[in-house]
Design a protein around this nucleic acid. Structure first.
Lengths: 335, 335
DNA sequence: TCCGGTTATCGAACCGGTTCGATTTTTATC
DNA sequence: GATAAAAATCGAACCGGTTCGATAACCGGA
């Protein structure tokens, strides 16, 4: 590997001039610039990013920390961020916390040790300790997906209240009254907002929520399955189930299939968030989806702004909340 | 941030002693070790990984380069690698090439610039240039998924010939003779092997392969859909379709649904590789799946071995090929 | 021709560690 | 108690860049 000293020797200038010429071509004379450029080409010099980061105190890398890279929700976001970062000569490092706050923290610290230029974080926890931790991060950052109370940072996400409300409204309009809700962990903003959307829409329609119809699915497949089973073995079954996320809804579909219930014949089902291959799942689930592409675009643009321009870096944190979109399927029938 | 010099000052020893003590506690005296340890604790010293990597010429990071992190196939592999790496105080950086060879190369070069300790690579291309590129990588590495002819590196993957053969055999035993095959790009080892498994099993059963029944699905959803459509509009339709991967098979299912064909009533379907939520897809697709957990374990162990022990690093490259598993569904009927 | 003000280039210090040969201290041996 | 060998510690160079104050070269104007 050729170093900057090799270039300097060949171009017959000092090391500092080479460095200057490469980072700020306007500040050296035309002929030395050319000499340096041809020397660079001759020895095949490429600056060592590690040495650069050490000297500059910051690298050209952007950290992306998510709870589960396999979740298609993150797919578009990752892609947008990568493409946008690439345009600005930055490089995205993806890390996966498996949803564990402890590991998330370790990953973030490691990334900061790498002197990343910026961080896109999908928070996986909550509470004062967690908030303190996130607030201690001094790198330019954007949070997304999960809004955490107390964290004063840019946030990009969807209107989860609206998501819950839209599907509830849809079911009500189809004539359903015995509507069940498989909820997520209530300490999560997404989960509590979706639930609130459900409850308030029911209330404003004057329909009472049967407490037995609200079960906790933890946003996971296994807990969602258990929760759905509890709903389905009740003597007076709900006529419709609203899954607060894709995992619990599909777990409910599985439970229905296993118990021999027909969807939507016996029970209607709808969910928040898409999954891959949802269009080959029978029935096609009626759902409300987030505009992940747009979310990713906003995250990417905002983060790069904060990284590259000092004015943007100084701006106060801002929330970007997008409306989700209703995607009709054939899993809900009129009653 | 406290530096090693702060520690040295407080412990009243030289910087080099601190460095030595931290990396090799056995080579300093007991009391200086203790003094250094308490000094480290007192100032909250944590070594700067960047400076360490620069000085040592290698970091504690492992690069994982895949074509699509969203593919559940990579999920287990990533998780196994991360867990195993963590046990050995290494840290996994995930990067996604979106299947583009150019970007893959750029990513690998960037990772090498970061002086990664090792690399797990799912090759996304082939051909002499590509082989030359991979062969030029001097970091300890393990290739997986796609076996590329000419690359002399450890390889971990599944027996794709067997995968194709098993499903073909299954369909033959159910009495099918008009069996169609939606193939992948033949320059890919996985694709050509699966195809070979199909062709040779058909041949040894004495069943002729109708050339109109072999179509190219490129392993992608869209091309798979087109290919399936071509199969389905033929006057003499196949009685069974074998999808060479999950994407083309599910695209075929979609095509069948759209054209009003019942699966398995009208046409049987089976596929290689699982997808998330396959158990809520109707019908449950009969498939052959790879043992991704075990693959991940082998990749992780092998790579860490090569990284941590010089003997393993010197070993000649080796192939680890696992047998896939047959998972019956209800998408194939007897004819 | 001399002078003040730019512009171009350089040298040295620095980022925060590691490493290795040299020096000092300790321990064991006679 | 002298001496060789072993163990502990140190200093300096190095990894490969950046940055900034200092110096050198250049320019037009009096």
């Amino acid at each position: 590997m050729a170093t900057i000293r090799d270039v300097a020797r060949l171009a017959e200038v000092s090391v500092s001039t080479v460095s200057l010429a490469l980072s700020n071509p306007g500040r050296v004379s035309q002929k030395t610039l050319e000499r340096i450029r041809s020397a660079v080409a001759a020895v095949g010099y490429v600056a060592d990013p590690l040495a650069q980061s050490l000297a500059r105190g910051r690298s050209k890398m952007i950290g992306l920390v998510v709870g589960n890279v396999g979740n298609p929700f993150f797919g578009d976001i990752r892609r947008e961020l990568e493409n946008y970062a690439l345009e600005h000569e930055h490089f995205v490092l993806i890390t996966d916390s498996s949803g564990k706050p402890g590991r998330e923290q370790a990953l973030v610290e490691h990334l900061i040790g790498l002197k990343i230029a910026g961080l896109a974080l999908a928070p996986s926890s909550f509470g004062p300790d967690y908030v303190r931790f996130v607030e201690s991060i001094k790198v330019p950052m954007v949070c997304f997906d999960q809004k955490v109370a107390g964290i004063e940072r840019d946030f990009v996400g969807s209107d989860n209240y609206l998501a819950g409300a839209m599907l509830t409204e849809h079911l009500l309009q189809l004539g359903h009254r015995r509507i069940a809700f498989i909820a997520g962990p209530q300490h999560m903003h997404t989960a509590s907002e979706r639930y609130r959307g459900f409850v308030e829409t029911m209330a404003s329609a004057g329909v009472e929520v049967n407490p037995n119809y609200v079960v906790d699915g933890q946003f996971t497949r296994s807990a969602g399955y258990e929760a759905a089973m509890r709903l389905l073995i009740q003597p007076e079954r709900p006529t419709a189930i609203l899954g607060a996320n894709n995992a619990v809804a599909l777990a409910a579909l599985q439970a229905m299939q296993e118990l021999g219930f027909n969807c939507p014949g016996d029970i209607s089902l709808c969910m928040i968030d898409d999954v891959q291959w949802s269009n080959v799942i029978t029935p096609r689930i009626t759902m409300v989806v987030q505009d992940t592409l747009k979310l990713g675009g906003i995250i990417a643009r905002r983060l790069l702004q904060r990284i590259t321009t000092p004015e943007a870096a100084a701006e106060p944190p801002q929330d970007f909340v997008l409306s989700p979109k209703f995607v009709p399927g054939n899993s809900c029938r009129r009653v």
